[in-house]
Protein backbone atom coordinates (compact mmCIF):
# COMPACT_ATOMS: atom_id res chain seq x y z
CA UNK A 1 0.00 0.00 0.00
CA UNK A 2 2.67 2.62 0.86
CA UNK A 3 4.67 1.62 -2.22
CA UNK A 4 1.66 2.05 -4.50
CA UNK A 5 0.99 5.43 -2.83
CA UNK A 6 4.59 6.44 -3.48
CA UNK A 7 4.40 5.14 -7.05
CA UNK A 8 1.16 7.06 -7.67
CA UNK A 9 2.62 10.24 -6.15
CA UNK A 10 5.78 10.09 -8.29
CA UNK A 11 3.77 9.21 -11.42
CA UNK A 12 1.38 12.11 -10.90
CA UNK A 13 4.30 14.42 -10.18
CA UNK A 14 5.93 13.45 -13.50
CA UNK A 15 2.68 13.82 -15.44
CA UNK A 16 1.78 17.18 -13.87
CA UNK A 17 5.24 18.63 -14.46
CA UNK A 18 5.61 17.26 -17.99
CA UNK A 19 2.17 18.29 -19.23
CA UNK A 20 1.96 21.49 -17.20
CA UNK A 21 5.39 22.82 -18.10
CA UNK A 22 4.99 22.03 -21.79
CA UNK A 23 1.63 23.86 -21.80
CA UNK A 24 3.12 26.81 -19.98
CA UNK A 25 6.07 26.91 -22.38
CA UNK A 26 3.66 26.94 -25.33
CA UNK A 27 1.66 29.72 -23.78
CA UNK A 28 4.81 31.70 -22.93
CA UNK A 29 6.03 31.38 -26.53
CA UNK A 30 2.64 32.67 -27.75
CA UNK A 31 2.82 35.54 -25.26
CA UNK A 32 6.34 36.49 -26.33
CA UNK A 33 5.26 36.52 -29.98
CA UNK A 34 2.16 38.55 -29.11
CA UNK A 35 4.28 41.07 -27.17
CA UNK A 36 6.73 41.34 -30.08
CA UNK A 37 3.85 41.93 -32.50
CA UNK A 38 2.32 44.46 -30.12
CA UNK A 39 5.64 46.34 -29.90
CA UNK A 40 5.93 46.38 -33.70
CA UNK A 41 2.37 47.69 -34.03
CA UNK A 42 2.91 50.31 -31.32
CA UNK A 43 6.09 51.49 -33.03
CA UNK A 44 4.34 51.54 -36.41
CA UNK A 45 1.45 53.58 -35.02
CA UNK A 46 3.87 56.06 -33.41
CA UNK A 47 5.90 56.46 -36.63
CA UNK A 48 2.78 56.93 -38.76
CA UNK A 49 1.31 59.45 -36.31
CA UNK A 50 4.57 61.41 -36.18
CA UNK A 51 4.78 61.56 -40.01
CA UNK A 52 1.08 62.16 -40.67
CA UNK A 53 1.38 65.95 -40.98
CA UNK A 54 4.41 66.17 -43.26
CA UNK A 55 4.34 63.04 -45.40
CA UNK A 56 1.80 64.48 -47.85
CA UNK A 57 4.19 67.31 -48.75
CA UNK A 58 7.07 64.86 -49.06
CA UNK A 59 5.09 62.51 -51.30
CA UNK A 60 4.10 65.39 -53.61
CA UNK A 61 7.64 66.78 -53.88
CA UNK A 62 9.31 63.43 -54.57
CA UNK A 63 6.54 62.33 -56.98
CA UNK A 64 7.15 65.42 -59.09
CA UNK A 65 10.91 64.89 -59.00
CA UNK A 66 10.56 61.18 -59.83
CA UNK A 67 7.28 60.72 -61.70
CA UNK A 68 5.49 57.52 -62.70
CA UNK A 69 4.85 58.58 -66.30
CA UNK A 70 7.06 59.99 -69.03
CA UNK A 71 7.84 63.56 -67.85
CA UNK A 72 9.11 64.82 -71.23
CA UNK A 73 6.34 67.42 -71.60
CA UNK A 74 6.85 68.79 -68.10
CA UNK A 75 10.61 68.91 -68.71
CA UNK A 76 10.14 70.78 -72.00
CA UNK A 77 7.94 73.26 -70.16
CA UNK A 78 10.70 73.70 -67.56
CA UNK A 79 13.31 74.11 -70.32
CA UNK A 80 11.17 76.81 -71.97
CA UNK A 81 10.74 78.62 -68.68
CA UNK A 82 14.49 78.44 -68.04
CA UNK A 83 15.11 79.80 -71.56
CA UNK A 84 12.82 82.76 -70.80
CA UNK A 85 14.60 83.47 -67.53
CA UNK A 86 18.05 83.36 -69.15
CA UNK A 87 17.10 85.12 -72.37
CA UNK A 88 18.18 82.36 -74.72
CA UNK A 89 16.38 80.84 -77.68
CA UNK A 90 15.26 77.24 -77.36
CA UNK A 91 14.88 75.36 -80.65
CA UNK A 92 14.73 71.96 -82.34
CA UNK A 93 13.26 70.14 -79.37
CA UNK A 94 12.93 66.41 -80.00
CA UNK A 95 11.90 63.63 -77.66
CA UNK A 96 13.45 60.21 -78.21
CA UNK A 97 11.58 56.95 -77.85
CA UNK A 98 11.40 55.54 -74.31
CA UNK A 99 13.77 52.80 -73.21
CA UNK A 100 14.70 50.99 -70.02
CA UNK A 101 18.07 51.63 -68.44
CA UNK A 102 20.23 49.09 -66.56
CA UNK A 103 18.61 49.90 -63.22
CA UNK A 104 15.06 49.24 -64.46
CA UNK A 105 14.11 52.90 -64.81
CA UNK A 106 12.32 54.09 -67.92
CA UNK A 107 14.25 56.76 -69.76
CA UNK A 108 13.73 59.13 -72.63
CA UNK A 109 16.25 61.53 -74.13
CA UNK A 110 15.19 65.09 -75.01
CA UNK A 111 17.44 66.71 -77.61
CA UNK A 112 17.32 70.47 -78.09
CA UNK A 113 19.39 73.48 -79.00
CA UNK A 114 19.84 76.76 -77.18
CA UNK A 115 21.25 79.87 -78.72
CA UNK A 116 22.42 83.08 -77.12
CA UNK A 117 25.36 84.97 -75.66
CA UNK A 118 27.99 82.92 -73.81
CA UNK A 119 27.10 83.94 -70.21
CA UNK A 120 23.38 83.35 -70.79
CA UNK A 121 23.94 79.96 -72.42
CA UNK A 122 26.30 78.94 -69.60
CA UNK A 123 23.75 80.07 -67.01
CA UNK A 124 21.05 78.11 -68.86
CA UNK A 125 23.17 74.95 -68.94
CA UNK A 126 23.95 75.28 -65.24
CA UNK A 127 20.24 75.82 -64.48
CA UNK A 128 19.19 72.51 -66.04
CA UNK A 129 20.43 70.80 -62.89
CA UNK A 130 18.04 72.66 -60.66
CA UNK A 131 14.52 71.77 -61.76
CA UNK A 132 12.12 68.89 -61.25
CA UNK A 133 11.63 66.26 -62.69
CA UNK A 134 15.11 64.81 -62.20
CA UNK A 135 17.22 64.61 -65.33
CA UNK A 136 20.80 63.91 -66.33
CA UNK A 137 22.82 65.65 -69.00
CA UNK A 138 24.09 63.00 -71.41
CA UNK A 139 26.14 65.32 -73.57
CA UNK A 140 26.46 68.93 -74.64
CA UNK A 141 27.98 70.24 -77.84
CA UNK A 142 28.90 73.93 -77.96
CA UNK A 143 29.76 75.84 -81.11
CA UNK A 144 30.39 79.52 -81.65
CA UNK A 145 29.60 81.43 -84.80
CA UNK A 146 29.60 85.19 -85.19
CA UNK A 147 29.63 85.82 -81.47
CA UNK A 148 26.61 83.62 -80.83
CA UNK A 149 26.89 80.43 -78.84
CA UNK A 150 24.82 77.45 -79.90
CA UNK A 151 24.60 74.51 -77.53
CA UNK A 152 23.02 71.21 -78.50
CA UNK A 153 22.00 69.22 -75.47
CA UNK A 154 20.90 65.62 -74.85
CA UNK A 155 18.99 65.55 -71.60
CA UNK A 156 17.73 62.23 -70.17
CA UNK A 157 14.51 62.15 -68.14
CA UNK A 158 13.38 59.21 -66.02
CA UNK A 159 10.25 57.67 -64.62
CA UNK A 160 9.23 54.50 -62.78
CA UNK A 161 5.88 52.87 -61.99
CA UNK A 162 4.31 53.51 -58.61
CA UNK A 163 4.36 50.79 -55.94
CA UNK A 164 1.18 48.72 -56.01
CA UNK A 165 1.30 46.95 -52.67
CA UNK A 166 1.32 48.09 -49.08
CA UNK A 167 3.41 46.04 -46.64
CA UNK A 168 1.52 43.70 -44.26
CA UNK A 169 -0.12 45.47 -41.33
CA UNK A 170 2.16 43.66 -38.89
CA UNK A 171 5.29 44.73 -40.76
CA UNK A 172 7.29 47.46 -39.07
CA UNK A 173 7.91 50.86 -40.65
CA UNK A 174 10.92 53.04 -40.09
CA UNK A 175 11.17 56.79 -39.94
CA UNK A 176 13.17 58.48 -42.67
CA UNK A 177 16.91 58.14 -42.22
CA UNK A 178 19.13 61.22 -42.22
CA UNK A 179 20.14 60.47 -45.83
CA UNK A 180 16.52 60.10 -46.92
CA UNK A 181 15.57 63.33 -45.15
CA UNK A 182 18.46 65.13 -46.87
CA UNK A 183 17.37 63.76 -50.25
CA UNK A 184 13.75 64.84 -49.61
CA UNK A 185 15.01 68.36 -48.83
CA UNK A 186 17.16 68.32 -51.97
CA UNK A 187 14.24 67.21 -54.15
CA UNK A 188 11.84 69.68 -52.53
CA UNK A 189 14.22 72.54 -53.32
CA UNK A 190 14.18 71.79 -57.05
CA UNK A 191 12.31 74.29 -59.20
CA UNK A 192 8.77 72.89 -59.38
CA UNK A 193 6.87 72.93 -62.70
CA UNK A 194 3.99 75.36 -62.96
CA UNK A 195 0.67 73.67 -63.48
CA UNK A 196 -2.08 75.97 -64.59
CA UNK A 197 -5.63 74.95 -63.90
CA UNK A 198 -8.15 75.73 -66.60
CA UNK A 199 -11.36 77.02 -65.03
CA UNK A 200 -14.53 75.56 -66.57
CA UNK A 201 -16.52 78.13 -68.59
CA UNK A 202 -19.83 79.17 -67.13
CA UNK A 203 -22.90 78.01 -69.10
CA UNK A 204 -24.17 80.78 -71.36
CA UNK A 205 -27.72 81.18 -72.61
CA UNK A 206 -28.50 79.70 -76.03
CA UNK A 207 -29.02 82.35 -78.71
CA UNK A 208 -32.27 82.01 -80.63
CA UNK A 209 -31.31 82.39 -84.34
CA UNK A 210 -34.90 83.30 -85.33
CA UNK A 211 -35.15 86.34 -83.13
CA UNK A 212 -34.48 89.52 -85.05
CA UNK A 213 -32.14 91.82 -83.19
Amino acid sequence: MPISLLFLGVLLLIIVFKVGISQINNQKAKLQKAERDENVLTQKQEVLQSLEAEVLGYADAVSIAMPDKNPSLITISQLKQLAEINGVVLADVEVGSPSKDKKGLSKSVISFEVEGALPQVLSYLAGMDGFAPLSTVDKVGITQAAGTIRASVDLAVYWAPLPTKLPAISESVQEFTANEAALITELSELQQPLFTEVEPALPSGRIDPFVFQ
Partner: peptide, 11 residues
Protein backbone atom coordinates in the same frame (compact mmCIF):
# COMPACT_ATOMS: atom_id res chain seq x y z
CA UNK B 1 5.24 56.86 -46.73
CA UNK B 2 5.64 53.81 -49.00
CA UNK B 3 5.28 56.02 -52.08
CA UNK B 4 7.86 58.53 -50.79
CA UNK B 5 10.35 55.76 -49.98
CA UNK B 6 9.85 54.15 -53.40
CA UNK B 7 10.34 57.49 -55.21
CA UNK B 8 13.43 58.22 -53.10
CA UNK B 9 14.96 54.85 -54.03
CA UNK B 10 14.35 55.57 -57.72
CA UNK B 11 15.66 59.14 -57.35
Amino acid sequence: LVLTRDRLNNA
